[in-house]
Design a protein around this nucleic acid. Structure first.
Length: 417
RNA sequence: GCGACCAUAGUGUAAUGGUUAACACGGGAGUCUGUGGAACUCCAGGUACGGGUUCAAUCCCCGUUGGUCGCCCCA
């Protein structure tokens, strides 16, 4: 038997409807904030990701689906959504219209990781990017958009953490300070962290090892090393956030997975999700476009994972009930089956969800099918109905049944629907 | 990439080194040939894959694949 590749999923109702629902909600809300949908290729030149995300990050060093096409070009299934949009912007800035350009995307991402609850090799993300402004109010808008979305789909008890990474210079300076500090504590650090000190010292903050956590309690904080401008920017972001109803915590140890972040970064998690608890996150990337050869253009964005939102909604009892059929059509004999089929098509033309038995069964069995499918109404068609032009419409909840002509039935179903 | 645990009808569980692998729910049909949800009867459907040990393996061993949970990392 051929099985689906590891870490991938098939989606059928009701799970597929959950995804559709989350997409609709996003489209609706993002439109209100002025964001339009953007679609980019699902694979890109490998260079795009290695350069933007950072060579030493886990994603690039071991998690990418990379392959050569028939001409020997190295391509990679996108592991995240920001780099492709930045690429498109640099390729043709004018197509993005007025700045800031506000776009969102919905689609699958790919990372070669060991699957576990809330983590897949092919997973769904929805993200937004606002390109062309460094104004702090935009940071607040973006964070508000993320939190509003999560609220919109019914999630509560979320923890929002924010931090500032400063600019390039700040980061380099801070990185050296942190290295010095960590080197002095090297004896207390775990095996992995000893390596991190040299390669990517900020990552030590993510370590869950108790000794490492102890060792960094007095570590220098990036917030103390960021320059005046960056600090001012962060203060403004917090000021604008004060205008919203959003609760957040400044977390000086918050470090995100991509090297391109500058200034504001943020992450939202749910304590109900276990080890993979991050629902979404993002931040500002003011240097990325310039680093790629575009005109210096500041930008900010975020992304969240649909599987984890679905998980959190399940834990919080918010899962959507599968959509039901509205009307089931039953027929008495082969003769009336044709009439039933005609009416079935008529109902569907009138936007009424309806279905009927395919194989002939006795009426009892057909009503049993209707019952199993939890329909609201059932229509019975037999020789008597065809002769009189009046059909028996039964309310499946109250068991009440009336004889009505077709127009009345259509009208009734539409009102109910 | 590392570690631990796991794999039996669609789902949830049972059982045994030896005739036919059991039960519940779910699915289908009928009892009831023009009126559903109950009850009863019947039907379909299963030991993930590949090796090994053995007279004999669903059971024991190894490998593969997949899942779950940690680590890493992140969505």
């Amino acid at each position: 038997m051929i099985k689906k590749p590891r870490g991938t999923q098939d989606f059928l109702p009701p799970k597929s409807e959950e995804i559709a629902y989350l997409e609709e909600k996003a489209a609706e809300l993002f439109k209100r904030y002025g964001y339009g949908r953007m679609i980019t290729p699902i694979f890109e030149s490998t260079d795009l990701f290695t350069r933007s995300i950072g060579e030493t990050t886990d994603i690039v060093s071991k998690e990418m689906y990379t392959f050569n096409d028939k001409k020997g070009r190295s391509l990679t299934l996108r592991p995240e959504g920001t780099a492709p949009i930045v690429r498109a912007y640099i390729e043709d800035p004018s197509s993005f219209g007025l700045l800031p350009a506000k776009v969102y995307y919905i689609g699958q991402m790919f990372r070669y990781e060991r699957p576990q609850a809330g983590r897949y090799r092919e997973f769904w993300q929805i993200g937004v990017e606002a390109i062309g402004s460094s104004d702090a109010v935009l940071d607040a808008e973006i964070i508000d958009l993320l939190m509003s979305y999560l609220e919109e789909v019914g999630l509560i008890n979320l923890d929002l953490k924010i931090n500032s990474m400063g600019c390039k210079n700040d980061r380099a300076k801070y990185s050296e300070q942190l290295k010095d500090y960590l080197r002095s504590k090297k004896a207390d650090l775990c095996k992995d962290c000893r390596q991190r000190v040299e390669v990517n010292p900020l990552r030590v903050f993510d370590c869950k090892n108790k000794d490492c956590q102890m060792s960094i309690t007095n570590a220098p904080k990036i917030i103390d090393y960021i320059c005046k401008d960056c600090n001012g920017h962060f203060e403004k972001v917090k000021g604008y956030l004060g205008a919203t109803s959003i609760k957040y915590k400044v977390e000086s140890r918050l470090v995100r997975g991509f090297d391109y972040y500058t200034r504001t970064v943020f992450e939202v998690a749910s304590s109900e999700l276990g080890a993979q608890d991050a629902l979404g996150g993002g931040g500002r990337y003011d240097n990325l476009i310039a680093d790629y050869g575009g005109d210096s253009t500041p930008a900010i964005g975020f992304a969240f994972g649909l599987e984890r939102i679905i998980l959190a909604r399940q834990k919080q009892g918010k899962s959507k009930r599968p959509t039901k059929l509205h009307l089931w059509i039953s027929y008495i004999d082969e003769e009336s089956k044709k009439e039933a089929f005609k009416l079935l098509l008529l109902m569907r033309k009138n936007n009424i969800s309806a279905d009927m038995s395919l194989d002939y069964k006795n009426l009892k069995a057909q009503l049993r099918q209707a019952d199993k499918r939890d329909v609201g109404y059932s229509l019975v068609i037999g020789p008597d109905e065809i002769a009189s032009g009046k059909y028996a419409l039964k309310d499946m909840n109250t068991k009440e049944q009336q004889s009505l002509c077709i127009d009345e039935i259509v009208r009734r179903m539409k009102d109910e629907g």
